[in-house]
């Protein structure tokens, strides 16, 4: 460092930094508290493709429950489809309840996840 550089550095160091007004610190903190919200979006419970699978399974379950023997409404192509499915007459009542229950629970979980996914949590930086 040459003498001119040294002299200037000594002067800058001697004079030091500007003194910020005492209220500035509090003002900045207050402003940060008011305005500096960090939007954090929590990760969804399940990935989108998982929800699509669950949705398809739920729809299939409902469809299956409606088409099970004993319903009395299976006609046309549905009846044709039912002819190719395994005979589940003996467990149809229990299975129907289970499938419908599963579909309802899937729906509830989907709504819950959608809520969590759009949730915004304000935090102060």
């Amino acid at each position: 460092m040459n003498p001119a550089d040294r002299a200037l550095e000594d002067l800058f160091q001697e004079v030091g930094p500007e003194r910020a007004p005492s209220h500035l610190h509090a003002r900045i903190l207050a402003q940060l508290a008011d305005k500096a919200e960090i939007r954090t979006v929590p990760a969804p419970l399940l990935a989108r493709w998982q929800w699509i699978l669950i949705g398809l399974a739920a729809m299939g379950s409902i469809l299956l429950a409606v088409m099970l023997p004993g319903n009395g409404s299976s006609t046309g192509w549905i009846a044709l489809l039912m002819d190719h499915l395994p005979d589940m007459t003996s467990i149809s009542s229990t299975l129907r309840t289970t499938l419908i229950g599963g579909a309802v629970i899937s729906g509830i979980l989907y709504v819950l996840d959608a809520q969590l996914n759009t949730r915004v949590r304000p935090t102060h930086g």
Partner: peptide, 16 residues
């Protein structure tokens, strides 16, 4: 300078 200092910290927080 005060206003610029405030803006600086806000920008810094937002652009962290």
């Amino acid at each position: 300078a005060e206003e610029a200092t405030q803006d600086t910290f806000l920008k810094a927080i937002r652009g962290l």
